[in-house]
Simulated assay, not measured.
Amino acid sequence: MGMNDTPSGERVHIGFFGCRNAGKSSVVNAVTGQDLSIVSATKGTTTDPVYKAMELLPLGPVEIIDTPGFDDVGALGEERVRRTKKVLNKTDIAVVVIDAAVGKSQADEDVLRLIREKNLPCLVVYNKADLVPQHAAPAGSEIYVSALQDDGIRELKERLARLKPEEAAAPIVSDLIQGGDFVILVVPIDTAAPKGRLILPQQQTIREIIDNDCAAIVVKEYELRHTLDVLGQKPALVITDSQVFAKVSADTPPDIRLTSFSILMARHKGLLENAVRGVTAIEKLKDGDTVLIAEGCTHHRQCDDIGTVKIPRWLRNYTQKDIQIETSSGRDFPDDLSEYAMVIHCGGCMLNGREVQYRMKCAADQGVPITNYGIAIAYMQGILKRSLSVFPHLQEIIV
């Protein structure tokens, strides 16, 4: 991914829902102008959610999600419906496609109820309008289209653009710096990243620094002390990868603000305060407790992987307890968290804000503390208060 590409987690997620054979996939293909989904008269052709990142005018960068029919049946159908419901947790705009010749079904009513419960912007699309020329006038949140004849599709896209949520995400770093500042980014070469690339939070942070007329100085962990010595000027901020927190803290003078990419991403995704409050659950862990370590992305596991190797090792060394570890990655975040003593989540750079908020709410509703990688690592290494110096109101949470 290049620095000018919009990552999935920053795109507007548009989910298409409805019954089998309502024409969801046909509408998706008409909206995108691509053969994104297979179209067939056979019920249940779409068996898994289909994702497509693209530019959709006049909306901009979006992630289109085509889902299986909400009225699917049988054991396999129930699993498909369950997966479709999970798509709602990451959806920013919901589109419910209804066969205009058939009308609204109970399954359509069910999905609309779930959408209302989640307070999602929604548009009801009556497809196959060419089959019912004498249809009733649509309500304000409804539209009639014919995907087959490409009728009403332009208006549909314009209506979707008007439903785009207001920007609510906190910045990554722009409000912590001002024009002319320079920021040092400590970036160990992550073996889990593709060769020749920085990982996504590093790219995003660099881009935001540059966009705010500041200078980004990128060094490896063993170059930090020398860089500070030769600069002759104090940086506005040092941002480090959490895996080298201890060394970077030791090498950074106490009068220089220090934080991590993971902490900045936690704020950007709306998790930070909950994560700071949740991290003290580490003190209550006891023998036999199970901790869920959750990642929003999937990648090839390296021999010293942070989620499956380093954090479990640091946890056991810090607590001196026999702690059990379970992991989840990508979209496979469990609905039932009751068996876990706490959740330690990654920075969430590959998840949109709505999905991170959903996961946080799942934990809160079930009384399970949740924190994130950077906060947990800083806490166990005794440097969390310092790492939160850029957010002083949160320092008081940590006793």
Rank of each mutant, 00 (worst) to 15 (best):
I206T: 15
T227V: 07
V218D: 05
A193Q: 14
F245N: 02
V238K: 07
E208G: 12
Q204F: 06
I189S: 01
R207D: 08
I184R: 08
I184Q: 10
A168E: 13
V218N: 06
D241M: 01
Q178H: 09
I177Y: 09
E223G: 04
T252D: 04
L200C: 08
L198D: 11
R197I: 10
I210H: 05
G180L: 04
V218I: 15
E166L: 15
Q203F: 04
K234H: 14
V248A: 00
K247M: 02
K234C: 11
V183H: 14
A215D: 12
E223R: 02
D251V: 01
A246W: 00
Q243M: 09
P165D: 15
I206H: 06
L185Q: 13
P171Q: 11
P253L: 03
T252A: 04
T227H: 04
I189G: 00
S242E: 01
D211N: 15
A193R: 13
D229K: 07
T191C: 01
D251A: 07
E208W: 11
T252G: 08
V183K: 14
L237W: 10
V218C: 14
I217Q: 09
I210N: 02
H226Q: 14
S242T: 08
A168G: 14
S174T: 12
V186W: 05
I172D: 03
I172A: 08
P235Y: 04
L198E: 10
R197C: 10
I189E: 02
Q243W: 01
P253W: 03
G232M: 05
E208K: 13
I239Q: 05
I239C: 02
Q204N: 13
T205C: 15
T191P: 06
E166I: 10
D181R: 04
P188Q: 04
E221T: 07
Y222D: 12
A192F: 08
K164M: 15
L224D: 01
I189A: 02
I172P: 07
P201G: 14
K220Q: 04
K164E: 11
Q178A: 09
I239T: 05
L237A: 10
D241W: 03
L176V: 13
